[in-house]
């Protein structure tokens, strides 16, 4: 035959997905390092900082799955963080159900709420969707502030249990356990999102994000997949709420259903790079240390110096690097380096 079919043959022999050996090795070393870290230098602050970075990376990844894969911009993602926190906290406080199971309950309730919110919101596009999520997010806060069963504005105090740390998911002597729990969730989440990115579902969602009309002309039921993306996103967020609740042991509407959390996950994702699975890690590694360090140097809430820096950084990113910090990393280290 002719030359063209040779090229076709070659194309068919290419692997479905490229793996960059170098980046795989780097990821492997980093993961190993993170697992060994508590043995090397178990400074309380460093562990806390890393834990916050992992947690916020997962929370932002949840937001990123929605925006980056299906193009819907949520300004109310704290809803699912709050549901996660309240689910595990409430069932442990009232019925002594282990928070491990509470996490699963939180995921299930979040998925259900995402379905309830997602379906009627399908008609809303662009700003209407974004503002609706903002208002729904605040509504959750208002409702929980006034709901006596969950402690209203005082919130829930998770009863202290020193006898069975693993069952109660409370580690009073040594915070290292929290570190490993978040690390494991962090790795699992990123692995699942990485798989999603390469799955049939991922192809369909990205098609909807880029051009929803073209997607529906190619047999994709756009509304159904948008709701699916919303549900997946919610399910990623919920466990972080549960873990956070077990870490601080106080759950109130202001530290869980807070608009600040909704905005923070958006800022982290945009900072790192929306639609890129590394974006949330990068964004979280930059922004979270800023707030943790400013808390040390300026005390208390840091007199909101961290927020001033956040705000300015984000504006600069929007103006100069709308595709996020990840776009500064040379392409060869990202994906598909064999191309061109």
């Amino acid at each position: 035959m002719n030359l063209i079919s040779k090229e076709l043959l070659q194309a068919k022999n290419e692997p479905l997905n490229y793996f960059n050996k170098n980046s795989l090795i780097i990821i492997g070393i980093v993961v190993l390092g993170l697992f060994l870290y508590p043995f090397i230098s178990p400074s309380k602050f460093a562990l806390h900082l890393l834990m916050m970075i992992f947690m916020h990376a997962v929370m932002s990844q949840s937001w990123n799955v929605l925006a980056g894969f299906s193009g819907q911009i949520s300004l109310g993602h704290a809803i699912f963080f709050g549901i996660g926190a309240y689910a595990s906290g409430y069932f442990y406080t009232k019925f002594q159900i282990t928070p491990w199971f509470g996490i699963i309950i939180g995921i299930a309730i979040s998925a259900f709420i995402a379905l309830l919110i997602g379906v009627p919101m399908l008609r809303l596009k662009g700003h209407y969707f974004a503002i609706a999520t903002l208002l729904i997010g605040i509504s959750f806060q208002v409702i929980f502030q006034r709901w006596p069963e969950v402690g209203a504005s005082a919130g829930l105090y998770v009863p202290i249990n020193r006898d069975s740390p693993w069952l109660s998911m409370q580690f009073h002597k040594n915070k290292v356990a929290y570190y490993y729990i978040t690390l494991v969730f962090f790795i699992i989440t990123f692995f699942l999102v990485w798989l999603l990115n390469r799955s049939k579902l991922g192809y369909r969602l990205k098609a909807i994000r880029d051009q929803s009309e073209a997607a529906s002309s190619l047999g994709i039921h756009v509304s159904k997949y948008k709701v699916i993306a919303f549900i997946i996103s919610a399910m990623i967020m919920a466990p972080m709420g549960s873990i956070y609740a077990q870490y601080v042991l106080i759950i109130d509407p202001n530290n869980t259903f807070s608009a600040d959390i909704s905005i923070l996950v958006l800022l982290i994702s945009v900072m790192g790079g929306v639609g890129n699975i590394w974006g949330p890690i990068i964004g979280s590694s930059i922004l979270i240390p800023i707030s943790e360090f400013s808390r040390i140097y300026f005390g208390g809430t840091g007199r909101s110096i961290d927020l001033i820096i956040y705000g300015i950084l984000i504006i600069l990113i929007c103006i100069f690097r709308p595709s996020g910090i990840v776009s500064l990393i040379p392409r060869s280290f990202r994906e598909r380096e064999k191309v061109k």
Binding site: L267, Y310, I314, C318
Partner: peptide, 23 residues
């Protein structure tokens, strides 16, 4: 820019202004 970046920029502005006021 995309709508997301526009939303983000004005949100960034909101965060900055409010934090400056608090400071």
């Amino acid at each position: 820019s995309t709508m997301l970046i526009q939303i983000c920029a004005t949100f960034g502005l909101a965060v900055t202004i409010r934090a400056l006021a608090q400071f």
